Lab assay of single mutants.
Amino acid sequence: MKVIFLKDVKGMGKKGEIKNVADGYANNFLFKQGLAIEATPANLKALE
């Protein structure tokens, strides 16, 4: 799943980066902790 990092995550990515991560990792950790959001077309447009 493609995500946009909202904060730096050690060993994974930096704020503003777009990366592919495992679905479970994104849903169970990154999204719940507020560290990333899904890289949807609307979210990608908002990032620009």
Rank of each mutant, 00 (worst) to 15 (best):
residue 39 A to S: 04
residue 44 L to Q: 08
residue 25 Y to M: 13
residue 38 E to W: 06
residue 46 A to D: 11
residue 30 L to P: 02
residue 9 V to T: 03
residue 16 G to K: 02
residue 8 D to M: 02
residue 10 K to M: 14
residue 48 E to S: 12
residue 1 M to D: 01
residue 29 F to E: 12
residue 17 E to N: 02
residue 9 V to S: 01
residue 9 V to H: 04
residue 17 E to P: 00
residue 29 F to T: 08
residue 40 T to M: 03
residue 31 F to L: 14
residue 34 G to Q: 09
residue 36 A to L: 02
residue 42 A to S: 10
residue 41 P to V: 11
residue 22 A to L: 13
residue 29 F to L: 10
residue 34 G to I: 03
residue 8 D to A: 05
residue 10 K to E: 14
residue 1 M to P: 06
residue 33 Q to I: 08
residue 7 K to L: 08
residue 32 K to D: 11
residue 27 N to E: 15
residue 6 L to K: 02
residue 39 A to E: 02
residue 40 T to G: 04
residue 28 N to R: 09
residue 7 K to V: 11
residue 22 A to Y: 11
residue 15 K to N: 04
residue 48 E to W: 06
residue 1 M to S: 06
residue 39 A to Q: 01
residue 41 P to L: 12
residue 35 L to P: 00
residue 38 E to T: 05
residue 24 G to R: 11
residue 46 A to N: 10
residue 6 L to D: 03
residue 37 I to W: 05
residue 21 V to N: 00
residue 18 I to M: 07
residue 10 K to H: 13
residue 5 F to D: 00
residue 27 N to V: 15
residue 18 I to C: 07
residue 39 A to P: 02
residue 11 G to D: 09
residue 27 N to Q: 15
residue 11 G to Y: 07
residue 9 V to E: 01
residue 36 A to R: 01
residue 35 L to H: 03
residue 28 N to Q: 10
residue 17 E to Y: 03
residue 35 L to V: 08
residue 4 I to W: 01
residue 5 F to R: 00
residue 20 N to C: 14
residue 44 L to R: 06
residue 24 G to K: 12
residue 35 L to S: 04
residue 19 K to A: 14
residue 30 L to Q: 01
residue 16 G to D: 05
residue 13 G to V: 03
residue 3 V to A: 01
residue 26 A to W: 12
residue 2 K to R: 12
residue 7 K to R: 13
residue 47 L to T: 07
residue 13 G to E: 01
residue 18 I to L: 07
residue 47 L to P: 04
residue 31 F to K: 08
residue 10 K to S: 12
residue 35 L to Q: 04
residue 36 A to Y: 01
residue 14 K to Q: 12
residue 32 K to V: 09
residue 11 G to R: 05
residue 36 A to C: 05
residue 39 A to I: 03
residue 33 Q to Y: 15
residue 32 K to A: 15
residue 12 M to K: 08
residue 38 E to F: 04
residue 3 V to M: 02
residue 48 E to G: 11
residue 26 A to S: 04
residue 23 D to H: 15
residue 18 I to T: 06
residue 25 Y to I: 15
residue 45 K to F: 07
residue 46 A to Y: 11
residue 43 N to T: 06
residue 21 V to Q: 01
residue 36 A to S: 01
residue 19 K to H: 09
residue 18 I to N: 02
residue 37 I to L: 10
residue 23 D to L: 15
residue 36 A to V: 08
residue 40 T to Y: 04
residue 26 A to F: 12
residue 25 Y to R: 06
residue 39 A to C: 10
residue 41 P to N: 10
residue 43 N to P: 01
residue 6 L to G: 01
residue 20 N to V: 14
residue 43 N to C: 08
residue 29 F to G: 04
residue 3 V to F: 00
residue 7 K to I: 09
residue 31 F to E: 06
residue 20 N to W: 15
residue 31 F to G: 05
residue 10 K to A: 13
residue 44 L to S: 05
residue 23 D to S: 15
residue 29 F to W: 13
residue 1 M to V: 13
residue 8 D to Q: 03
residue 27 N to Y: 15
residue 43 N to Y: 05
residue 47 L to Q: 08
residue 39 A to R: 00
residue 21 V to L: 07
residue 32 K to L: 14
residue 25 Y to K: 06
residue 7 K to Q: 13
residue 8 D to P: 05
residue 26 A to G: 05
residue 43 N to R: 06
residue 30 L to A: 01
residue 10 K to C: 13
residue 48 E to P: 06
residue 14 K to I: 10
residue 48 E to Y: 08
residue 30 L to K: 00
residue 42 A to D: 15
residue 13 G to Y: 05
residue 15 K to Y: 06
residue 14 K to D: 06
residue 24 G to Q: 13
residue 13 G to T: 00
residue 14 K to C: 13
residue 48 E to R: 07
residue 23 D to M: 14
residue 33 Q to D: 11
residue 28 N to F: 07
residue 40 T to A: 04
residue 32 K to C: 14
residue 31 F to Q: 04
residue 8 D to C: 07
residue 9 V to Q: 01
residue 11 G to P: 08
residue 19 K to N: 03
residue 1 M to H: 05
residue 17 E to A: 05
residue 33 Q to M: 15
residue 33 Q to P: 02
residue 12 M to P: 00
residue 14 K to H: 10
residue 12 M to V: 14
residue 10 K to Q: 13
residue 37 I to N: 02
residue 40 T to R: 04
residue 45 K to A: 15
residue 6 L to W: 01
residue 35 L to F: 10
residue 46 A to I: 14
residue 25 Y to T: 13
residue 13 G to F: 08
residue 38 E to V: 05
residue 23 D to I: 15
residue 22 A to M: 12
residue 3 V to T: 01
residue 6 L to H: 01
residue 5 F to C: 02
residue 22 A to D: 15
residue 34 G to Y: 10
residue 39 A to W: 11
residue 8 D to H: 06
residue 7 K to G: 09
residue 32 K to S: 12
residue 47 L to D: 05
residue 38 E to R: 09
residue 4 I to Q: 02
residue 47 L to M: 11
residue 4 I to F: 03
residue 44 L to C: 11
residue 4 I to E: 01
residue 42 A to M: 07
residue 5 F to P: 00
residue 23 D to W: 15
residue 3 V to R: 00
residue 18 I to R: 02
residue 35 L to Y: 06
residue 11 G to K: 05
residue 13 G to P: 00
residue 9 V to L: 06
residue 47 L to C: 10
residue 42 A to E: 15
residue 37 I to H: 04
residue 33 Q to E: 12
residue 41 P to D: 13
residue 30 L to R: 00
residue 34 G to L: 08
residue 43 N to V: 09
residue 33 Q to C: 15
residue 24 G to V: 12
residue 36 A to G: 04
residue 44 L to I: 15
residue 35 L to D: 04
residue 26 A to D: 07
residue 38 E to N: 03
residue 41 P to T: 10
residue 37 I to F: 04
residue 35 L to K: 03
residue 20 N to S: 14
residue 8 D to S: 07
residue 12 M to I: 13
residue 45 K to C: 14
residue 7 K to D: 09
residue 30 L to C: 02
residue 10 K to V: 12
residue 42 A to I: 11
residue 42 A to C: 10
residue 31 F to Y: 06
residue 25 Y to W: 11
residue 2 K to F: 12
residue 28 N to H: 12
residue 35 L to R: 02
residue 31 F to M: 08
residue 8 D to F: 05
residue 23 D to V: 15
residue 7 K to H: 12
residue 33 Q to G: 08
residue 37 I to C: 07
residue 10 K to N: 10
residue 37 I to A: 05
residue 9 V to F: 03
residue 22 A to W: 09
residue 34 G to C: 12
residue 41 P to A: 12
residue 5 F to W: 02
residue 46 A to T: 10
residue 45 K to P: 04
residue 3 V to I: 10
residue 9 V to R: 01
residue 9 V to K: 03
residue 17 E to M: 07
residue 22 A to H: 12
residue 45 K to L: 12
residue 35 L to C: 05
residue 4 I to S: 01
residue 12 M to H: 14
residue 7 K to Y: 13
residue 44 L to V: 13
residue 41 P to K: 10
residue 3 V to E: 01
residue 3 V to D: 01
residue 16 G to H: 08
residue 36 A to P: 00
residue 19 K to Y: 07
residue 3 V to K: 00
residue 31 F to W: 03
residue 42 A to G: 10
residue 30 L to I: 03
residue 34 G to M: 09
residue 21 V to A: 02
residue 3 V to S: 00
residue 30 L to S: 00
residue 28 N to K: 10
residue 22 A to S: 14
residue 19 K to C: 08
residue 43 N to L: 06
residue 10 K to W: 14
residue 4 I to R: 02
residue 33 Q to T: 12
residue 32 K to G: 12
residue 15 K to E: 07
residue 28 N to M: 11
residue 20 N to G: 08
residue 7 K to W: 08
residue 17 E to K: 02
residue 19 K to D: 04
residue 14 K to T: 09
residue 28 N to E: 11
residue 45 K to E: 13
residue 32 K to M: 14
residue 35 L to N: 02
residue 2 K to M: 13
residue 19 K to G: 07
residue 44 L to H: 05
residue 24 G to A: 13
residue 48 E to L: 12
residue 40 T to W: 03
residue 35 L to I: 08
residue 21 V to G: 01
residue 30 L to T: 01
residue 26 A to H: 05
residue 44 L to M: 11
residue 30 L to Y: 02
residue 2 K to H: 10
residue 6 L to R: 03
residue 37 I to V: 13
residue 18 I to E: 03
residue 20 N to A: 14
residue 48 E to A: 13
residue 48 E to H: 13
residue 41 P to C: 11
residue 48 E to M: 12
residue 6 L to I: 11
residue 5 F to H: 00
residue 16 G to T: 02
residue 31 F to I: 14
residue 43 N to Q: 06
residue 30 L to E: 02
residue 17 E to R: 01
residue 13 G to W: 10
residue 14 K to M: 09
residue 35 L to E: 03
residue 24 G to I: 14
residue 32 K to W: 10
residue 21 V to Y: 03
residue 26 A to M: 08
residue 10 K to D: 13
residue 12 M to F: 13
residue 33 Q to K: 11
residue 28 N to A: 12
residue 17 E to Q: 10
residue 44 L to T: 08
residue 22 A to N: 14
residue 19 K to I: 11
residue 21 V to K: 01
residue 18 I to Q: 06
residue 8 D to Y: 04
residue 48 E to V: 13
residue 6 L to S: 02
residue 39 A to T: 02
residue 17 E to F: 03
residue 41 P to M: 10
residue 34 G to V: 03
residue 46 A to F: 12
residue 42 A to R: 10
residue 21 V to P: 01
residue 13 G to N: 01
residue 31 F to C: 05
residue 23 D to F: 14
residue 22 A to G: 12
residue 19 K to S: 08
residue 17 E to H: 05
residue 46 A to W: 15
residue 17 E to V: 04
residue 4 I to Y: 08
residue 4 I to M: 06
residue 45 K to V: 13
residue 7 K to T: 12
residue 24 G to D: 15
residue 4 I to K: 04
residue 6 L to V: 10
residue 2 K to C: 15
residue 21 V to D: 01
residue 24 G to L: 10
residue 45 K to N: 10
residue 31 F to D: 04
residue 14 K to N: 10
residue 38 E to K: 07
residue 12 M to Y: 11
residue 4 I to L: 10
residue 17 E to C: 07
residue 24 G to W: 13
residue 4 I to G: 00
residue 16 G to C: 08
residue 35 L to G: 02
residue 4 I to A: 02
residue 41 P to Y: 09
residue 25 Y to Q: 07
residue 12 M to W: 12
residue 45 K to G: 09
residue 14 K to S: 11
residue 26 A to Y: 12
residue 39 A to D: 02
residue 41 P to G: 09
residue 42 A to V: 09
residue 44 L to K: 06
residue 25 Y to E: 09
residue 24 G to T: 14
residue 17 E to L: 03
residue 22 A to I: 08
residue 22 A to V: 09
residue 20 N to Y: 15
residue 33 Q to R: 12
